[in-house]
Design a protein around this nucleic acid. Structure first.
Lengths: 195, 195, 195, 195
DNA sequence: CATGAATGAGAGTTCATTCAT
DNA sequence: GATGAATGAACTCTCATTCAT
C-alpha cells in the first residue's frame, strides 16, 4: 500500500466520520460517503467494502485520539478532585454536543446483534476508564480528599451514570444543568461539596 | 371508526410490536409488518402511514401496560427497601432479556433527530420513575430503613445507572453478576447491606 | 394466485422466451426481460427472482409443447421408415434455424456446474427420444423395413449424432446438405437407401 | 516485439488458459485474468484488449499442441483397429474430465453469433479429424480389419457422435460406461466385436 | 513498458407508496 | 374497506477501460 493510498484512506475515514456524526450509523450508505468524499462510486470500494468496515476504522482512529483524555491538559500538581472534575466536565462537553459527536453512531452500530460484544471498542474504553477513575479515587482517599470505601464500585457507578447521561442526551435530551446536578451528586458522594 | 376497525388497529400494533422486538426500529419496513400481519400491502396504509407512526402506537400501548410496575405484585406491608429491591430486580430481568424487549427499538427510534425530545414517552417514564423512587426513599428514610440526605439526587442517580446498564446491555453486553453489583452498590449507598 | 396473475406470468415467460432465443442464456439480464416485457423494474421480481428461474419455466412450457413431435402430423398408416425420416427432418429444420431456437440458450444454461445434471429437462427429452426411436426401429425390423440387430445402440447413436449436429450448427455452422448426408447415413445403416 | 514481450504474452495465455478451463468463457473477466496473472490492470491491456482475443490465442496454442494426437504414443506396427480404438479412448478420457478441459469454454465462445463460423479452430480440427479417421478406415478395410463401404460417412458419423458425447457430458452428464457403449457400437459397425 | 488508482456505466434487488378493482 | 399488482427511486456492487506517474 503506497503512501498516497494511505493518505486517501485516511481522507475517506475522516470524511466518513463527519457523515456518521451527522446521520448516525444505520442510515449511512456507501453512496453518502462516496458523495461526501467526492470520489466515484467504484472508487470507495477500492479501499473499503462496507459502511461497517469504514465505521470500525473511524472508531480505531477515534480511540487513538481519545486515549489522551486524562493525559493532556492537566497540570502536574492537580488534586484528585480537580482531575476527576476535569474528566467529568470533558464528558459533559462531549455529551452536550448535538452534532460533532459519534455517540449516536456508535450506539447504533453496536445495536446490531452480529457485532461481537465482548471485544468492542466502547467496552474497552469503558473498562479502561473505570480503572483509571478507580485509581484516581484511591489516590484521593489516601490524600484525604475523598471519602469512599468502595473504589471500584464508585468508579463503576460513575461510568454507568455517564452512559446513562449519554443515552439520555440522545433520546430525551439533557441540559447543562441536568449534567451538572449529576456531577455534583457524584462529587458529593465522594465528600466534595461543589460551590 | 367502527369497532372492527379498532380491533384491526390493535391487532396490527400488537403484531408490529413483535417485529420491533426482533429487529429494533430502523430496519423494520412496512413490508415486514404487512407480512407478519398477513394483511395486504395497501391494507396497512389504511390505518398507518409509516413505521414511526406504528411504533408510537406501540409505545403508547406499552406505557399503558407498564404503569403498574410498582402497583402489582407488592404486598401491602412491604418495606421501602423490599419495594426498591423488587423494582431494581424487575429492571434487571428486563435488561437481561435479549429478545422480547423493546429497548433496542426504543433507543433506535429516539435516535432520529426529528423526534421531539421533551414530550416523549420514555422521558415521561423516566421522570415518573424518579418521582416514585424519590418518594420511596423519603419513606424509607423516615422509617429509619435508609440513610440518605438527597432523595431526588439519589433517585436520579439510580435511574441514570439503570439507563447506563440498559444501553450497556445492548452494546457491550452485561451479565447478571454485573447488574447485581450495581444494585448492591445502590442499596449500600442507602445504608442497606445485601447478603 | 389469481387468473390475471397466471396470465401475466405466462406473458412474461413467452416474452422472455424470445429474449433467450435471441441472446442465449448467459447474457440475458433481468433488465433485458423487464424491457422486452414493458414492465417496471420491480414488477418482474413479483413473479420471478432470477433469469435461471425464468428460463426453467420457459423450458417447462417448451417441453409441454414439444411432447407431440411424434404424435402430430403423422398419418395413421405411415411406415416406420417414413416416421423416422419425418422425425429426422423435423430435427433438421430445428437445427438449421438460426434464430427462433432455444438450443443455444439451453446449452448455455446447462453449462453452469451448479445445475443438477441428472434430472434436467434435456436429459429427459433425450432419454425419451431414444426409447421412442428404439421402438420404432424394432417395429421397422419386424416389418422387414429395417435391418438392424442392436435397436437400442442404433437409437442412441442416432441421438448422439443429432446432438453432435446441433452443437455443430451452433459453433461451426452446418448446411442443409450436411444434415442430409447424416440422415442418409443413418437410414442407410438401417438398410434404407434414400433417393 | 521484443523477446521479453513474447515471453510475457505466452505467460498470459498459459495462465488465462487455466482460468478458462475453470470458468468457461462467458463468465471470465479481464479482472479474473489480471488477478491470476499477478499483473497490473493496465498491464494486460498492453497486450490484449478483450477476453475474446485472449481466448483465440489460447485456442491457437491449443491446436498447435493438439495436432499430434495421432502421431504420438502409437507403435509403428499398430493395426487400424488399435489406432482407432486408441483415438476413441483418448477422446473418452478428454470428455470425462470435468476440469482441466477447455470444452465448455470453447462451446461458450463459439456460441456468440459474432464469431465467424467457417474458419474457426474447432471446425478445422473436426474436418482434419474426419479426414484422418476416413483414411484409417480405408486402411482398415484394405487390411481386412474393417467392414465398411462408406468411409467418409462413417468417419463423419463417428465425429458427430463424439461431438454429441462431448456436449452431453457438459450438459446432462455422461459416465464411462455410456461412452464405452458408444465406442463399442462404433467398432461393431466396422465389424469389430470388443471384448 | 508497467502500474494501479479512478471513473462510470450497468446489473441486481428491495421497498414505500399508489391505485384500479 | 381491502387487496395486491405495479411503479420507480434508491442502494449495493462489479468491471471494462483509461490515464497520470
Amino acid at each position: 500500500m503506497s503512501d498516497k493510498s494511505e493518505q486517501k484512506k485516511k481522507y475517506i475515514i475522516e470524511t466518513a466520520r463527519e457523515v456518521f456524526m451527522e446521520k448516525g450509523f444505520k442510515t449511512v450508505t456507501m453512496k453518502d460517503i462516496v458523495e461526501r468524499c467526492n470520489i466515484s462510486r467504484g472508487g470507495l470500494y477500492l479501499y473499503y467494502e462496507s459502511t461497517a468496515q469504514i465505521f470500525l476504522e473511524v472508531l480505531k482512529l477515534e480511540s487513538q485520539e481519545a486515549d489522551d483524555v486524562f493525559s493532556g491538559n492537566i497540570s502536574e500538581d492537580a488534586t484528585a478532585a480537580e482531575i476527576l472534575l476535569f474528566f467529568l466536565n470533558e464528558q459533559k462537553k462531549e455529551l452536550l454536543r448535538k452534532s460533532n459527536t459519534l455517540t449516536k453512531a456508535i450506539y447504533e452500530f453496536y445495536f446490531s446483534e452480529e457485532r461481537p460484544k465482548k471485544t468492542n471498542v466502547i467496552k474497552r474504553q469503558f473498562d479502561e476508564g473505570v480503572k483509571i477513575v478507580e485509581n484516581l479515587i484511591r489516590v484521593g482517599v489516601e490524600n484525604g480528599e475523598f471519602v469512599c470505601d468502595d473504589y471500584k464500585g464508585t468508579a463503576r457507578n460513575i461510568f454507568y451514570v455517564l452512559e446513562g447521561l449519554k443515552i439520555t442526551a440522545q433520546t430525551m435530551g439533557v441540559t447543562a444543568a441536568m449534567v451538572d446536578a449529576e456531577i455534583a451528586y457524584i462529587m458529593q458522594n465522594l465528600g466534595i461539596e461543589l460551590a
